[in-house]
């Protein structure tokens, strides 16, 4: 029977469409074992590197692990969400997007699926990183609420960054171009208070480091987990993340529509 006995008269609801695309992206993430292992192993290796190799020189007191963990978490989030750009570019250039677009569904949900999978993937990686951090001597003064707030800030940061990478994936002409553009963003954590306090940097670099989004996010997580003074960091971090999120969403939507109309 080519013609179905159970032909649907209804369209898939938006909830079902989103659920299907999230399921698809999660499945694709799980099957891309190399990328998944990289996303978890790289931050762990970096943490071990910074704690045992550079740590002694940066902070001879041996307390560096407590300083560096928030930075490693963000580095991990940045690296993990960058693969969203490649996944999105892959879908946009492979012809599968044309099939979705000719179906009576909201095809932008394909992108939302990748974003949701990235969020899940990165929170998992963050969990592993925090677990390893405890093993190598990380100690936190945070109570339940502080932990919850820290995870909330990390999740918001991952979400904002993932949508930004999704927009980059939409703009890029090919998966490898997407990967290239995404790479630039991965240097931001190094120019922040992630690994060393910004006060140790030359004056001109301090200006950059103090006024880029990563620094307030890191300072917020550090304040929540290690009890350092929080200052203005918390609201600055939230404003930065929401600002990036809204801009990235608008950019994604506009690009998706433009590409749909042009071809």
């Amino acid at each position: 029977m080519i013609t179905s006995r159970t032909a649907p008269v209804r369209n898939a609801s938006l909830a079902v469409t989103n659920a299907v695309f999230i399921g698809r992206s999660v499945r694709l993430s799980l099957r891309n074992a190399e990328a998944l292992i990289m996303a978890i192993m790289l931050p762990v290796m970096l943490m071990l590197l910074f704690t045992y190799v550079f740590g002694g020189a940066i902070d001879p007191g041996g307390d560096y692990v407590n300083y560096v963990v928030p930075g490693i978490i963000l580095l991990c989030a940045g690296f993990g969400s960058s693969s969203t750009a490649v996944d999105v570019a892959q879908d946009m250039t492979s012809g599968i997007i044309d099939r979705f677009r000719t179906m009576p569904i909201r095809s932008l949900s394909v992108i939302a699926g990748h974003v949701a999978a990235s969020l899940a993937r990165n929170l998992l990686a963050t969990g592993v990183v925090i677990g390893v951090a405890f093993v190598v001597g990380f100690r936190s003064s945070a109570g339940f609420l502080e932990w919850l707030a820290a995870i909330g800030v990390i999740a918001l940061f991952i979400l904002a960054l993932t949508w930004l990478f999704a927009a980059i994936g939409l703009v890029a002409g090919s998966p490898s171009a997407a990967s290239g553009y995404g790479f630039i963003l991965l240097f931001l954590p190094y120019l922040s208070s992630a690994f060393v306090p910004t006060t140790t940097m030359p004056g001109w670099l301090q200006g950059v480091a103090n006024h880029q989004p990563i620094t307030p996010v890191i300072e917020t997580i550090r304040a929540l987990l290690a009890g350092t003074p929080i200052g203005h960091s918390a609201w600055l971090a939230v404003v930065w993340c929401l600002g990036i999120l809204l801009l990235a969403l608008a950019w994604s939507l506009a690009t998706f529509r433009r590409k749909a109309g042009r071809r």
């Binding site: 698809r24 499945r27 012809g95 044309d98 099939r99």
Partner: peptide, 10 residues
């Protein structure tokens, strides 16, 4: 379409 639009990893 001209190119098979199926997911390779599914």
């Amino acid at each position: 379409g001209q190119f098979a639009a199926v997911d390779d990893m599914l």
